[in-house]
Write a protein that binds this DNA or RNA. Structure first.
Lengths: 245, 245
DNA sequence: CCCCACTATTGACCATTGGTCAATAGTGGA
DNA sequence: TCCACTATTGACCAATGGTCAATAGTGGGG
């Protein structure tokens, strides 16, 4: 058993090594600007060995993306342990999302790549499911807080379903992130601090949903300070200032 | 001159033919699932001839996308001629955007493709600029109405810059469209009518921005009816019901 | 009407690269 | 030490984006 065990472990370690290097390639150079030969060279294995772990280049990249998405879901989970009014708690998720975006600056670019059908099709069923599972985990964590907000009476429950509310929050966040990474948009719209813009838009959407206490009725900078202290003491980015007024 | 004129015209006609077929390929099969040989066959020209018009496959696809984006900007322009309160007018743009999304169901998928760096790099500078110009046109049309809303006092002008407001509206729209075309999300969030969801989210964002008259204070279904009558009498989709309450 | 110079078009060819698999090196138990 | 089995390799294949020398087509001038 010991020999077999060691082999399993070695295999896992090698997979980790490959994924790590692939992540570097993917984030720094996109999908096209490197090939499997180069990756094989980088990890000091032959090309064929890579294919013992991954069925295709797409499969490998999906695995990289799923790993990142899992980290994201983990951050969401940490954030959802934050205590306070429900709107403070959904804010924690927004914070977590931005924390993630900062430590994985090019993640959304990779995520966009996955949306292309041909890409998705070339990946293993197992890996597709794994990715969807992590995505669903993120959704569920948001959805739970939305439902609690409705139960608590902070959020109107007669206008929209809780799922639609969760969807709206996710849409505004993803949209803001994606539009932020467009250099042209930064220029045209004069966005200096993309992350701040994302959080601002999340706040606006929460206000639009009527999620109390509204931005004007609560000191959310205090919430952020507490959040940073209690949950994200290791956060890597500066507190964005909330909308004036 | 007549001979030369004819040649120019023939060349333009052929480019049109190629773009038309490429559009079909791109929307129906994505970027990978067809090759230049097949496209050449479809238009009854040799592969080399395609390269007399376009520098690369990416260049060709960017041209297709830009053509669609131009239609989108044209619709925005038509929408911005709508009269009424400024929030009604921004609603017209939202309507135009959805009208466009309905007639080009896979446009956003193609647009996503363009965000990959390697794609963008392989296209001609001219075509890149053309695409950015149409994008900027869309932004400008939104921005104009935002500025007018601030001038008219319908939209607070002391909280955010007009650019940030335009950005927020675009982000929520793009994000909603993109998330809508994810089949998993439809399942998890129970989205039946994606377009309705997009408009709903636009409404929520406008409310969040404090753009008066708020959803609850105005009969926007009447606005939609007028919009449909006066501007988009040829619209292809059903009026979405606004949020209850 | 023919001819020639010039242009337009072609498709065989090339280079790159994702993916395969027969050959080889390595390993551990007898 | 040897053998049977596994792990690893990299030469090879097929697909495809892109090129360019060869060929077909064209129109003006004689």
């Amino acid at each position: 058993m010991s020999v077999s065990d060691r082999k399993v472990q070695e295999r896992a370690a090698r997979e980790e090594l490959i994924l790590g290097h692939a992540r570097g390639f993917l984030l720094r150079r996109g999908f096209q600007d490197w090939n499997m030969e180069q990756l094989a060279g980088a990890v000091n294995y032959a090309k064929g060995t890579l294919y013992l772990h991954f069925e295709s280049k797409e499969d490998l990249c999906l695995a990289v993306a799923t790993r990142a998405l899992r980290e994201r879901a983990d951050l969401f989970e940490r954030a959802s342990r934050f205590t306070g009014r429900t709107r403070e708690r959904i804010r924690a998720i927004g914070f977590a999302c931005c924390e993630f975006a900062c430590s994985h600056p090019d993640y959304f670019k990779v995520e966009l790549m996955l949306k292309s059908a041909s890409f998705w099709e070339k990946a293993t069923e197992t890996r597709r499911q794994a990715h969807q599972m992590e995505g669903a985990r993120c959704f569920r964590l948001v959805h739970e807080i939305v439902k609690e907000g409705m139960r608590a009476g902070d959020l109107p429950h007669d206008r929209m379903t809780s799922e639609s509310v969760a969807f709206a929050l996710i849409a505004v966040t993803v949209g803001s992130h994606i539009m932020s990474l467009e250099p042209a948009m930064k220029l045209v719209a004069g966005i200096e601090d993309p992350i701040r813009t994302v959080r601002q838009n999340q706040d606006l959407m929460c206000d639009g949903l009527g999620w109390r206490p509204l931005l004007a009725d609560w000191d959310y900078s205090a919430t952020d300070a507490r959040l940073r202290r209690e949950i994200f003491s290791t956060a890597t980015w500066c507190d964005p200032v909330t909308i004036a007024g």
